[in-house]
Amino acid sequence: MLILECPCCGVLADETELTAGGEAHLKRFGPESSDDEFEGYLFRRENPRGVHFERWRHSHGCGKWFHAARNTVTLEVYGTYSAQTTEPPEAIRQKISGVAPGWKWRLFK
């Protein structure tokens, strides 16, 4: 079972108390965007085997959105952080680099 700590209220919540919101750190495109940009936002997603950044909502708790860094193979959670953050905190990046050599943060377009 996946257990994440909500960084907003500090509660350790299992996946039944949370709602998954897909990949984190995507650039969202509005009405003024081109068809290619909007198509990319809707359909082009990472589906990595390993380190992944996701959006979660503490739906049966404080109701706030947050981001989680985890491994999709081992379900190891590297950390959680505010959804208002544009990239993972340095401490989480270092933790990931320590267990997944060669991993690099990718810039989202």
Rank of each mutant, 00 (worst) to 15 (best):
L2I: 09
L2C: 01
I3P: 00
L4W: 09
C8N: 15
C8W: 07
G10E: 01
G10A: 04
A13R: 14
D14T: 04
E17G: 00
L18E: 09
A20H: 10
A20L: 03
G21A: 02
E23P: 01
K27E: 05
F29A: 05
F29T: 06
G30R: 05
P31E: 14
P31R: 11
D36I: 08
F38A: 05
F38D: 04
E39N: 09
E39H: 08
G40H: 01
G40T: 09
L42G: 04
L42R: 06
F43R: 04
R44Y: 00
E46R: 05
E46I: 04
P48I: 08
H52V: 08
F53Q: 02
E54H: 03
H58A: 11
S59V: 15
C62M: 11
G63V: 12
K64S: 10
H67G: 06
H67P: 07
A68E: 13
R70N: 09
R70M: 13
T72N: 07
T72H: 06
V77I: 15
V77M: 05
Y78M: 14
Y81M: 08
Y81H: 10
T86E: 14
P89Y: 07
P89F: 06
A91R: 12
I92G: 14
I92L: 11
Q94G: 01
I96L: 02
S97L: 06
G98M: 03
G102D: 07
K109G: 11
